[in-house]
Design a protein around this nucleic acid. Sequence first.
RNA 1: GCGGCCAUAGUGUAUCGGUUCGCAUUGAGGCCUGUGGAGCCUUAGGGCUGGGUUCAACUCCCAGUGGCCGCC
Length: 383
Amino acid sequence: MFALHNQDSVTSARAGTLQTAHGPVQTPFFMPVATKASAKSISPQELIRLGTEAIILNAYLLHAMPGSGIIRELGGIHQFMNFEKAIFADSGGFQMIREKLFIGISDKGVRFHNPFTLQREHITPEKVMQINMDLGSDVAMALDHMPPAKGSDDMILAATLRTHQWAIRCRKEHDRLKSEGASLNNKQLLFGIAQGGTSKQLREKSAAFINSLDFDGHAIGGLATGESKEEMYDAAIAQLAILDPAKPRYLMGVGSPADLVKCVAYGIDCFDSVFPTQHARRGTLFTLNGPIDLTKGKFQKDTRPIDESCPCETCKSYTRAYLHHVLKAEKYTAFHYLSCHNIYFIQDLMSEIRKSIADGYFNELKKEFLGKYQSAKQPIKLP
RNA sequence: GCGGCCAUAGUGUAUCGGUUCGCAUUGAGGCCUGUGGAGCCUUAGGGCUGGGUUCAACUCCCAGUGGCCGCC
């Protein structure tokens, strides 16, 4: 279900195809985040028009509202939200352990308050697999325990070992349910997640463990959560050296345009992040010359589009001056135009990356992109 | 024309007879990376004009100017 077509000769970048029950996804690719089956301010059909081939949503939150049984009754998640392309389902552990509703975590699972009903709930690896069966997602993510960014070594070790035990249980339960024909999507894939904090040894150990469980793909979790860039890259590189190169490798939670380009060079095939949509909502828009902050007054009379070389609807139709105004005067409308641009920018970048890997000039593209994109970001040093 | 009220940052407001006039917004920087919160941090910018009372006035008094309301 995963085939590699091209391998860059200079970097570790590779291009391929991930086959899912809802069509092929060309790799490397970026998934917009649609946690509750809705990307903030962009419709599923628009995501497709912007170049999206896969999205990620959250299995647990959809179980909490409207209920995975209801979604199953309505024909599954694809039909429910009218998105007939690949859908990944994250487990739910991620946000539960950072929010106030979190009650506790043990080897059994995670306990917390249902965000909608406030009832106590217990989420287990088995439960997450069952939800995925009901949703009919294309890729189910195993339940993992992501330790807090500034956790102690003991905490990170415990979370990593727990993640391993849960990975085994997810693997077993997924096989069992599938063999019973319980899934709405009998071609559903299961990805495991490696943890390990910022320790190279633990990252390696975790990658080796997850790699041994015969998942359909492997994710690198727990990064982009407050550690330094160096720590993030080092952790990812350590695990990429161990994770089976014949399977897709997914760096969770990344990211920024520059991180995407760099991590593709390390050999990542798959990404997801709220970065483009969250930044759009804060008025930060990506351009080939680096990000601009549209909330600034200097754009009040700027009649250029966000990015002069961008062919997206927003750039074709509206000036920075107008978008600056709408962002101030009618922000919910602006969120739509701006999020569309940022998603288009990222999807277009990924598309260029794929082409460059296939045609053998990825490293040049990388250098040119980072040179232009990051030079604008260099702060002017004052005495 | 007469009477009343008001005058503090670009804007809207708060406080006080005594070392750095508070807040919001706006401006300028920065942060944001598997989204229950469209958020967080830093920084810039102010007492209408002229007199008086007082050891000391942004604060109290008078006049001017400008604005709002009412009356003729």
